[in-house]
Simulated assay, not measured.
Amino acid sequence: MEPSAIRYTSDVAFTPTVKAMQTRLGSREIYARMEAQRGFGTDLTPDVSAFIEAQRSVFLATANVDGQPYIQHRGGPAGFLHVLDARIIAFADFIGNQQYITLGNLTDNPKAYLFLIDYARRRRIKLWGEARVVEDAAWVERLLPAGYKARAGRAIEFTVTAWDSNCPQHIPQRFEADDVKAALEARDEQIREMEEAAVRQEARVRELEAEVARLRALARD
């Protein structure tokens, strides 16, 4: 859709055909109110920025000149996605299977889409925009997560056109293995501390009982 055709921020997704479908299926009134009241977001809020930078996984969608879509997964430690300002997200493009479908698509068509989902908190963020490839070694080095063993030959910069947050309905709750391990270790440590405290308390009780017995003996004498 050309920028001149966009009246509401949600028009990036709600084309005339989509709106006609909403009308036919009965949801148009709901989204018309949304458009009039708030629309999709444009600038990334502090809450959304924090959500993005906390993620360890992202899906990047592109399309070639024929409109054939392609989705690529990118992952890394929390913080590998960098929110540079209210509109720009950047990350090092780690070397993978070297098919370069995303890079080829972006060469012909900069339109792109990011989809982020947090299963543990059952939250997802959708971002529409444009992406470009940056082959600047110094910039790529700055974007690389510290201590992460991966190579990257370039960076991807994503400029946000609009974003939206979905409700948690139908998102299965899942947890990262590292988070589960940390939670179990914290639980086990808490149990150990409680057991040690119980042992100390029991020893103190025995001391007090012995002291009471001693004092009673003295009283009898």
Rank of each mutant, 00 (worst) to 15 (best):
L144F: 01
G153T: 08
E176I: 03
Q173V: 11
E195C: 02
E193A: 15
R187S: 07
R154Q: 06
E189W: 07
H170D: 14
S165N: 10
R154K: 07
L184N: 06
D179R: 13
F175N: 11
I191T: 09
E196R: 12
A162C: 12
Y148S: 05
P172G: 00
M194D: 14
R174Q: 14
T159F: 05
N166V: 03
D164T: 14
R174E: 08
E176S: 08
A150C: 00
E185M: 11
N166I: 03
M194E: 14
D179Y: 04
R151H: 08
T161N: 13
V180G: 10
R154V: 04
A162L: 08
Y148C: 02
D188T: 03
E176K: 09
A150H: 07
L144E: 00
H170N: 14
D178V: 12
A182Q: 14
H170K: 12
E196T: 09
D164E: 14
Q173P: 01
E193Y: 11
R151C: 01
T159Q: 15
R174G: 01
L184A: 13
E176W: 10
K149R: 15
A152V: 06
Q173C: 09
E185N: 12
N166S: 07
R174M: 12
R142Q: 15
D164G: 10
T159A: 11
E195M: 06
D178C: 02
D164F: 11
D178G: 05
C167T: 04
S165L: 11
D188R: 10
Q190W: 10
A146F: 02
E193Q: 14
G153E: 10
E185G: 02
A162T: 15
G147S: 03
R151Q: 12
A183D: 10
E196N: 09
N166P: 02
Q190Y: 11
K149T: 08
Q169V: 11
C167P: 05
D164I: 07
E185W: 07
D164H: 10
R142W: 09
E185Q: 15
H170P: 00
I156Y: 06
H170I: 13
H170Y: 11
N166Y: 02
W163S: 03
